[in-house]
Design a protein around this nucleic acid. Structure first.
Lengths: 124, 124, 124, 124
DNA sequence: GTGGTCTAGACCACA
DNA sequence: GTGGTCTAGACCACA
């Protein structure tokens, strides 16, 4: 369910956060569903439980999951919409990247083409 | 010529690298021009010379400038094209961001609009 | 594992880079192996951690090792071949030196003999 | 007569030293001949006179030229032989480079071929 | 624990 | 003056 690149530059805990949220957006994890326990993920991914814990804490803080001591963690009601709202913030990232590409002389057509292609890709 | 945010999350030396390359792209620094000396920038930006040095080392390695001990640093011939080529790599970043936005349900129209706006912005 | 001459003319960080790559070529450090941590080397060699850091940064950039904050540094898969490829560049150095020796009247026989001797030396 | 790379990594004063000695070895400058004055070289090469001066001082120290205040500098009698003797020291450099290439898996044949080629090159 | 960034300050060779 | 190297020491996020 989750693919982690242990040697990448993106922190592992961030990869976990994004991975869980991706699963929620894709409907693989539905609202109310149980999320794998910290221990479970730790073992299956071969990653330090503290790192998983850190990711879950952040997911909880964001309102994507809710963790109940002794019972486990669950996808929060309303998680999908809240994740989507936060994701819109990435429009700023897109804008920044586009600016840099513009300055490097990349044409608007090329950018538009790139984005079109992404939208034509099949959902994994 | 350079604006540095000392307290932002982006490392200072990276801001310097990008700032110098931006100036080269904008033609403010032309090929062959002398780049401000390490000490000069250090004083004018209020930043430790070691940090400037680190940025210049990377700029040299990238082929954007050439540093000669005892003489100074200069914009390398061919710097503009090499910076542009490297910048194209950001198309991957754009693609990634677009994928995330797509998954978050943002429409293709909205993305296209965002990019169009960037290309309509006046050059600073 | 590493022998450093602190007072030689070759910069310490370069000696570290070459020393680590030599260990990789000799198979003392195998692909995937953990490389000594910055602090570890710093202590064992009696060298400032910043200097080790500088060497590791370059080794990372070259693709010989991969450094992950919080986890450590590791010999990269494919490091051996990439080090070998880069080393071939020294053929140019050899050519240059040979030219100078030729100009100084040293005979081809003498050069050939010198090189033969090197290849007869036992591996350390 | 002299070609200087102002942006190379080799110090300018070293390039001058080697350039003058090459001219002596090639017989372009014969023993007893006047060497261009510091001022002359400074102007024709567009290089700071102090840098030329430094090179000439070293050439004098080595016994390749002899500088007489007010009269100029001349190729010393015996310069050719003394330059040749010193140049043999480069055999050590060759040995070191050969060792590194050997470790990188370059074959003895390839090295021998490289050197043969150099000896077949026409004198410039 | 790990690597990464930054400052302060010294010292060097080169131009 | 210039860039380059190095030390000492602090602080950070990440695992």
């Amino acid at each position: 369910m989750l693919v982690i690149d242990k040697y990448g530059s993106q922190p592992i805990y961030e990869q976990i956060i994004e991975g869980i949220e991706r699963n929620i957006l894709l409907g693989i994890l539905k609202e109310g569903d149980a999320v794998p326990s910290v221990r479970e993920l730790s073992v299956s991914l071969g990653i330090n439980p503290n790192t998983i814990q850190k990711a879950y804490l952040e997911l909880d803080r964001r309102g994507s999951i809710i963790s109940c001591a002794g019972r486990g963690s669950f996808v929060r009601e309303g998680a999908v919409i809240s994740i989507k709202v936060r994701a819109r913030g990435e429009l700023d990232t897109l804008r920044e990247t586009a600016r840099r590409l513009k300055m490097a002389g990349v044409s608007l057509e090329e950018l538009t083409k790139t984005i079109d292609d992404v939208y034509k890709e099949a959902e994994e």
